[in-house]
Design a protein around this nucleic acid. Structure first.
Lengths: 147, 147
DNA sequence: TTTCTTGCAAATTCTTTGCAGATTA
DNA sequence: TAATCTGCAAAGAATTTGCAAGAAA
């Protein structure tokens, strides 16, 4: 679950570089927010990150954590697990199918594929738990947005 | 984008059957909420469903739409596009990777797979837009939850 | 200094809940 | 009738924003 020291160092370097390139300030708060996400593979939520950062930066505020995470996402240093989930969206198609998602407008289009349905996933997964289903998410820019 | 009349009819039948089996009432409101999701492939959000249902059931309230959608999801008649997105979660791994998600506890575990990275998606997708990346989401019950 | 950043507090947005009256089987 | 549903209004959770004070180049 923990990321190697080596890897964390590389990620921190990438962060410092990004700041220099973008003319942003690598403040104490920003460094510690990024470090908390960079050092783990457990994909913490905002509240968790906030709680952990506060141990080292007791005065940090929750909205700074939010602002920093948005910034880091925008700069490509991290991404959110479900990027298009501002509001709940529903699907009455209960057959197995997959999704093409336009990363610009958020539109989602279904597609079916027998080939993708019986995709074989790495053997190691079996020791992690019972696999119930496999969903493929294809991301890109839709024809409408491409213009 | 529109679902065939035949398919819509079948979905409505499944809904009526579910109500009977579960001892739930197939009220006007519930029927129209389900119909709105069942008749389209565009995956509408709650507000959109509400707006459309109101055309036929002007007195329906937003919270009834919410309650009905939860109920329908629970009964397996529909599902939400991003089921695990109560709060935002972050990932500092910018290399291509995939996710195993436990549908019980929500824990997410990364895995890499060259084979999955160059998955070939159906040809038809190319006409929908530029494909940028492919993410595989494996859902199941993790070893810890299985007990 | 001068621009960028932070913390506070309040606002927004999305979703859920308690309750009394209306509705359905 | 008897249990279930609905609409209303208010509460709750997650996230965003305006602003004045504070920190970094």
């Amino acid at each position: 679950m923990a990321v190697s020291d080596q890897e964390v160092r590389e990620r921190m370097d990438a962060f410092m570089q990004m700041c220099r390139r973008s003319g942003l300030r690598a403040t104490h708060q920003r460094r510690e927010v990024f470090r908390e996400v960079a050092r783990t593979e457990e994909h913490p939520d905002v509240e968790t990150i906030y709680r952990r950062v506060r141990k080292r930066v007791p005065t940090v505020s929750l909205d700074t954590v939010y602002r920093t995470l948005s910034l880091l996402e925008e700069k490509g240093l991290l991404c959110r697990l479900e990027p298009f989930s501002g509001r709940a969206r529903f699907d009455a198609n209960t057959d197995s199918h997959h999704h093409f998602i336009c990363t610009r407008c958020g539109r989602v289009r279904d597609f079916a594929s027998e080939q993708l349905d019986d995709l074989s996933v790495p053997r190691e997964l079996r020791s992690w738990g019972d696999v119930r289903s496999v969903h493929v998410q294809v991301r890109g820019i839709c024809a409408k947005c491409r213009g």
